[in-house]
Design a protein around this nucleic acid. Structure first.
Length: 257
DNA sequence: ATGTCACCTGGTAGGTGA
């Protein structure tokens, strides 16, 4: 079973790239972030024609998430239950016995801003709900754009980025607290090439210079950890014309014993 | 040195968010 996450930065613009990527990478589950589409604009016909079912939680202009799956998706949820959030950031469903949580975590803009405080509160709410969700669904994957580079090795220039948004100690603490629920960063279960990033700013020729950050993550629960056989970042779509600024991240799970 | 992109409103640009 393969699952992937991709921040597409507008599904209206990126739909052809998503369909092409799925044709080349027929993963079982793909969660998308920043669809930026109201629910009635979601391209479900095109996605179904490509062989995928879709759950989506949309929003005009900002945010918006979706969960595409080859098999049936059951018990879908939108956003964090019990958290009254007007921003569309989470889509959850059970596929093939795995509880899949796709998230577009808040960016936070800059430390000290209202948006940063929202980010902190949002992660607290996510953690409080996930604790219960993990008890109900031991086989769980949390993946998406976390907007956090967990460690210095996830940053092309740690000194330049120190204390900046995506890299603050407070954000990294939020990431560690998610891990402490009993989750594992699938990417770090394997030896990886140095300077592996999932996001490159559109500015400053950042991709050409490989000046990026690893902020898109796939966290797997303890019960799933023995099944993880690979996890990699697919940089190819970042080389497309009109690319998203993010690359997909893919995890491979062996069949249950 | 700087270097973008997507989307909105309300226009033949400017603002916002990332």
């Amino acid at each position: 079973m393969q699952l992937a996450t991709w921040n597409v930065n507008s599904l209206a613009v990126r739909l052809p790239q998503v369909l092409a990527w799925l044709a080349a990478n027929p993963v079982d589950v793909l969660v998308l972030q920043e669809t930026k589409l109201a629910d009635d604009k979601f391209p479900h016909a095109e996605i179904e024609a490509a062989g995928y079912r879709a759950q989506w939680h949309g929003q005009k202009t900002y945010n918006g998430v979706a969960l595409l799956s080859r098999a049936d998706a059951a018990d879908a949820l939108k956003n964090i239950p019990g958290c009254d959030d007007p921003q569309a950031r989470v889509i959850t469903a059970t596929v093939g016995g795995v509880r899949v949580v796709g998230g577009y975590m808040p960016n936070g803009q800059a430390p000290g801003t209202d948006k940063f405080e929202y980010k902190m509160q949002w992660f607290r709410a996510l953690r409080d709900w996930l604790r219960d969700e993990l008890a109900r669904h031991p086989r769980l994957v949390l993946m998406g754009d976390f907007n956090i580079a967990p460690e210095d090795r996830d940053v092309h220039d740690p000194e330049l980025w120190r204390g900046q948004i995506l890299c603050t100690d407070e954000e990294r603490e939020q990431f560690r607290k998610l891990i402490a629920l009993g989750l594992h960063d699938a990417f770090r279960l394997f030896e990886q090439p140095p300077k592996s990033w999932s996001w490159w700013d559109y500015r400053n020729l950042a991709f050409r210079r490989n000046q990026g950050l690893r902020i898109d993550h796939i966290l797997v629960s303890e019960a799933l950890r023995p099944r993880v056989s690979a996890c990699c970042i697919d940089k190819l779509p970042r080389k497309n014309e009109r690319p998203s600024d993010h690359a997909p991240v893919v995890v491979t799970l062996d069949a249950a014993a």
